[in-house]
Design a protein around this nucleic acid. Structure first.
Lengths: 347, 347
DNA sequence: CGACAATATCGTAGCGCTACGAAACCGGCT
DNA sequence: AGCCGGTTTCGTAGCGCTACGATATTGTCG
């Protein structure tokens, strides 16, 4: 065991992984040909392609993408930055993006900001270090530093999950203000006079806050009431929903309709109503946001707004692919995926 | 606009990002010093550190990690491969891993296998192309090719979320068989005679299947009954829970206790019971798995097994960091995070 | 005040691959 | 046969950085 340190040390610099040159040698072709075969197999004659692929298999060659990326001054990494991957919306979108890009040979470098712009800037800086093929950001609010970094880099940028503001480059999403307004209109159309919006983490979650804005906007002409919003600083959980319901009931006697910033919050409201014997929708109409997995099967099934996180992911992937494949300025770099108000029995 | 193509083309190779050499020149030091400053700021004298950091700020220098990784033959990327990021368990773990590693300057390259070993192998191959600092895999079942790839690479490997089988390198998790057995024992201890296990996606989700095995193992001596498992091929959703409950009721008349492969499934069971007027726990005791966000607030609160996905993530990060920081063979490369049976009112 | 150790700085040879232009090859046609 | 356009193959100069050993600087002590 005496020589082990020395041999370890040597291994670091020498005798490491199989290289493209070794493949070329074994296949009896030039390194260029191997490289070409890997990048565009069709550009190589059948005979050589066969020899090369055999050599790769025999040697167990794994290309070094860092070397490739360095030489090509670009990588097949796509950096996706979301507030939190624990949030089912973003989990779905990230999952879809990664599936769509993965099949095209791109890899997803994940970051989450925990709703902090400073954190986002750090993540963007780190992402840029990999010369990514594209950067995908959540929302339209970014720090000055983030914008500067991005502007200096000419990496394609896609902002997702929000529309209705100036865009860095490309954007896919919908207007949250409209979604909030739609919720309010729906409750009003159902004949509810005394309605409110409850939301979690509104101080950090800009999108939920904008839904609240839209809700309020629709409300004002109706009844002149303002400030019919109740906030919970913590994350959007069922517990928060129960809490928020109780505070809403207390603050707004005779409450007839409630819009929730998130289906998980709405679920908590449902549970608490069951406990308190409040009938839904007879006593209280409840509308959520998200159309999560359980929303159609709870009691009663939840009326909610479906944002189509998977469609957003698909469109993001499409834009990324298009901007990599050449076409510099896509004709429509802003895609409105809209949302759907799904009417179920809770309203 | 005539010359735009040419200028674009030129930009690719020239006039690109600021390099370390330019920083060195501006700061009046050698490139080595700048590099050293970036990697170990303390190893540089205060005077030069100041000059370098100023030059970096003035130039807006962003290091090229591909060049760095190539030269160092390693990167600060950690590849994390999970079955699905939509699954709340893995979302939580990935989130924790990324938070813990992010603060140490590592980045997470995400992959999801959709429960396919072939897909996993492709992801491992892709990950290896980046000479990652470590690879984190889910579970202990991997294809032969995956094992070969990993063996040939001497990258540290952590397998998570499962224990009780041969390990590639390091592992963090718990025994799912034990968890399933604990669920059975709990139902039996509650005096339930006629119990069953319902699970979604058992043919792909090895861990849920092993929980079912453990459940059965505990059951057999009790009553001699076998095959008290009902499977649903689709993913674990509340809908699947409702479905499974109905099939269980039909197949096992007089059913008194039900263990679910997932809290989401259990939630579906709860909902369906509400609809059918089945009282929980009087008529039917229900135990879940996961202790998800809603499990404590539903009606009745759900008895469940908490796997501590965040602790798993933390321990994974710790192992990764330790294996990077030197200490070659950690004294205990297998960490049992165990699980907790949380008794609530559903049993 | 000189010798020596400890610390700080520097010079440079690659890391493995791709882009690019040149060279070789291959029929088909005059 | 000779020429030509298109296709396939090849040679090689870096991409930007780090490791490593060499050199310069500083501090300590007899």
């Amino acid at each position: 065991m005496t020589g082990s340190t020395a041999s370890l040390r040597r291994r670091r610099r020498k005798a490491q992984r199989v290289t493209l040159n070794e493949v070329a040698e074994l296949a009896g072709v030039s390194p260029s040909t191997v490289s070409l075969y890997i990048r565009k197999p069709d550009a190589v004659s059948e005979d050589r392609a066969h020899r090369v692929s055999e050599a790769i298999a025999k040697l167990g060659y794994v290309p070094n993408l860092m070397a490739g990326g360095l030489a090509a001054a670009s990588s097949r990494i796509v950096s996706v930055i979301v507030p939190s991957i624990r949030n089912a919306f973003f989990a779905e979108t990230v999952s879809t993006i990664q599936a769509a890009l993965g099949s095209e040979g791109f890899q997803v470098l994940l970051g989450h900001t925990e709703y902090s712009e400073a954190q986002e800037e750090a993540l963007v800086r780190a992402a840029l270090s990999w010369a990514p093929a594209a950067i995908v950001l959540t929302g339209l609010s970014h720090s000055h530093g983030t914008r500067a970094l991005l502007a200096a880099s000419d990496v394609p940028v896609v902002e997702m999950w929000e529309l209705g503001g100036p865009t860095i480059d490309m954007a896919v999403g919908f207007s949250h203000e409209e979604a909030g307004a739609a919720a309010a209109r729906h409750l009003i159309a159902r004949g509810r006079k005394n309605i409110a919006y409850v939301g979690a983490r509104l101080h950090e979650d800009h999108r939920a806050a904008r839904r609240a804005d839209g809700f309020l906007r629709e409300l004002a002409p109706e009844s002149g009431q303002a400030g019919r919003i109740i906030r919970h600083p913590g994350p959007a959980t069922a517990d928060a929903g129960a809490l928020l319901l109780n505070r809403a009931l207390q603050q707004f006697p005779g409450l007839q309709g409630l819009a929730c910033s998130n289906d998980l919050v709405a679920l908590g409201v449902l549970f608490e109503c069951q406990r308190r014997g409040i009938r839904i929708p007879e006593d209280l109409a409840v509308i959520g946001f998200g159309d999560l997995g359980f929303s159609a099967s709870c009691n009663p099934p939840l009326t909610t707004i479906r944002p189509s996180g998977d469609v957003i992911g698909l469109e993001v992937a499409r834009l990324v692919l298009a901007s990599v494949k050449g076409k510099p300025e896509a004709p429509e770099p802003v895609i409105d995926t809209s949302f759907l108000l799904v009417e179920r029995r809770s309203t």
